[in-house]
Simulated scan of single mutants.
Amino acid sequence: MNFGQIVTAMVTPFNEQGDIDFEATRQLINHLIDNGSDALVIAGTTGESPTLTNGEKVELFQFTVEVAAGRIPIIAGTGSNNTRESIEQTKQAELAGVDGIMLVTPYYNKPCQEGLYQHFKTIAETTALPVMLYNIPGRSAVNMEPDTIIRLANVPNIVSIKEASGNLEAMADIIERAPEGFSLYSGDDGLTLPVLAIGGAGVVSVSAHVIGNEMQSMINNFKNGNLAQAAKEHRQLLPIIKAMFAAPNPSPVKAALNLQGVAVGGVRLPIIALPEDQIEALKLVLPVSEHVAF
């Protein structure tokens, strides 16, 4: 399964009542497809998955598949720290017609490496869909080690990993030892170019909501051998990327989209709206043609 170079972890638009705004979601999907996204992750961390009910997630999967209409792959975030629940949600996502699933490392309960292996293998064996693993020790409090990832890479439909450990040495080890066809994506926007340099496939991105085309340009320049230009673009994008993570995700990126005229509404508690001083700071680095109130 080829997910492309830039996989955008899509925010979930809400209306003024805090419910999913499906018309805004339609507009966002089309905006992302038109502006550099090769695939979308739905109901991931950036999509505020901890605050979405199971029913909302399934409805969102179905709606996104319908709107995307085969133009790009849709990846459903069905991972949790409950193996049985993840299996059930994966089955529902498959019925909704998604193209793949993303499974995050189980958070809070801190399983051992064998527990991680059995968790992911068990879920993968219940679906025909390609599986992207998601290692993010900063949020889950457990790191999936390269040996465990390599074991899982030999499960036939586990085809990729979003690596957000920030450990380039570990990523290089995974890329070196993984079977042919297994891909590694940066889970950190700011490490996209370094990860490409060690053989990564691309990035699962938050910042691509607002700089998707610019990130595509950087990646294409790197792949075409224009290394100096790619490095220059990387440096130019870093202030924007930094701004996207100046507060807990997805508060900054939702504010940025609203500033750019792509209405996505606010966030659900316990995430709070970006303070006014940080919105003003966003305006200084964001490539916006016109600021709009929200």
Rank of each mutant, 00 (worst) to 15 (best):
I72N: 03
L103D: 03
E114A: 06
A293V: 14
V253Y: 04
G261V: 07
A43S: 15
G70D: 09
E276R: 09
I158R: 01
G44T: 09
Q27C: 11
M144C: 15
A170F: 15
P250G: 01
A255E: 10
M218S: 02
I219Q: 01
Q118Y: 07
V131F: 08
L282W: 03
I198E: 06
P111K: 05
E114D: 14
F14D: 06
L227N: 05
F61E: 10
M132D: 00
A273C: 07
A76G: 07
H119R: 10
T51W: 11
V155D: 03
P252S: 05
T46D: 03
S207G: 04
K121P: 01
I241Y: 02
P146F: 07
V210N: 07
F22Y: 15
Y185F: 14
F14L: 15
S207W: 02
G36Y: 11
K232A: 14
L103Y: 03
N135Q: 04
L191C: 09
S165Y: 04
T78A: 03
L191S: 10
T12W: 04
Q5D: 15
E233N: 11
G47M: 06
R84W: 00
S165F: 06
I87F: 06
L196Q: 06
V203G: 11
D188N: 15
A153K: 10
H234F: 08
Y107D: 07
P13K: 08
G190S: 14
I74P: 05
K232H: 13
L103R: 06
T45V: 02
E145T: 07
E23C: 00
N213C: 01
S251W: 02
L269F: 11
G115I: 01
E233S: 12
Q118K: 09
D277Q: 08
A124Y: 13
L238S: 06
F61M: 10
P287C: 03
I158K: 01
A124K: 12
K223M: 04
V210Q: 03
P179D: 08
Y117T: 01
E59N: 06
D188H: 14
I211P: 08
T148S: 14
D277N: 09
R71M: 01
N143L: 09
F3D: 08
A293C: 04
V288T: 13
G55C: 02
T83W: 00
I161A: 02
T25C: 06
P73A: 04
F245G: 05
